[in-house]
């Protein structure tokens, strides 16, 4: 297998700045094709930004984003929109279109990108809804659904076009244990059954570790560590260990950078 086929997404020497602040500095990430890759890191380290870079919703300050053999920063606006048909994203809130019902939400990508007849669209939509276990809810409006159901509908919509790459933005946040279990199973199932390349961005250690084949640990503008879940668990790197074991203070400090405590208290102002 050549390198291009082995990796669905490759970030090379990528830097990204917001204002004067570095979010990423010269990072390299390679996402293997057909596997579930977890991207983990503490809150606010730019995990969602990373997804937006892969989706080309943000342009990197420097470096390349290769997706399926194409360098995204070099593409035109319309080429990008074509490119995105191969990707699906499950947003944190689900991001269902509030003025359409469940059926139309899932049918939307099909109606936009295909000229399929209505009956065929209906069949596909019901199949996708069946896959997430919500076929019975196709007539409901998004505001009638619970948070977990919204995310499942959004998942059905994300796979409507059978994308090659599926990205999940914090899929486990704010889910009750049952909904979480359902999602974990679905993500694994989609990857195994359809051969979809999955990228899971999360800070939920246990769930991500349970489904990911490979994990990147991101933080402090760099890739702190990478490997299979087991390798990371047994890593010697203090920063990796701190995150994986959930130790409050360590190389990633508990305190936000500040002036000396004693000076601040005694100095007055």
């Amino acid at each position: 297998m050549s390198a291009e086929q082995q990796y669905a997404v490759e970030l090379k020497n990528l830097s990204f700045q917001r204002g004067d602040r570095d979010i990423f500095k010269d990072i390299d990430i390679r996402i293997p094709r057909g596997k579930v890759t977890g991207i983990m890191g503490p809150s606010g380290c730019g995990k969602t930004t990373l997804l937006r870079l892969i989706g080309a919703q943000l342009r990197p300050s420097k470096g390349d984003v290769w997706v399926n053999g194409q360098n995204l920063p070099g593409l035109s606006r319309s080429e990008l929109f074509d490119m995105r048909k191969q990707m699906g994203v499950l947003f944190q809130s689900g991001a269902l279109f509030t003025d359409l019902d469940v059926f139309e939400n899932v049918a939307f990508p099909l109606r936009v990108h295909t000229q399929l007849p209505d009956e065929m669209i209906r069949d596909i939509v019901l199949m996708k809804l069946q896959a997430v276990g919500l076929r019975g809810a196709y007539e409901l409006m998004p505001d009638e659904l619970s948070g977990g159901m919204k995310r499942r509908v959004a998942l059905a919509r994300a796979i409507a076009l059978d994308p090659q790459i599926l990205m999940y933005d914090e899929p486990f946040v704010g889910q009750d244990p049952i909904a979480m279990g359902v999602l974990v199973r679905l993500i694994r199932l989609l990857s195994d059954a359809l051969g979809i390349t999955s990228i899971v961005v999360s800070h939920d250690l246990a769930e991500t570790a349970s489904i990911a084949d490979y994990i990147y640990l991101v933080g402090d503008t760099k890739v702190l560590g990478q490997g299979t879940p087991d390798e990371l668990m047994n890593s010697d790197d203090p920063r990796v260990r701190q995150f994986m074991k959930g130790i409050p203070d360590g190389p990633v400090p508990f305190h936000f950078p500040a002036a000396d405590y004693r000076d601040d208290l005694l100095g007055g102002r």
Partner: peptide, 14 residues
């Protein structure tokens, strides 16, 4: 704010 615009973009709709 509900990411509907982003998700449109990712579906490939401007």
């Amino acid at each position: 704010s509900t990411e509907q615009l982003s998700s449109l973009e990712m579906i490939g709709v401007d």
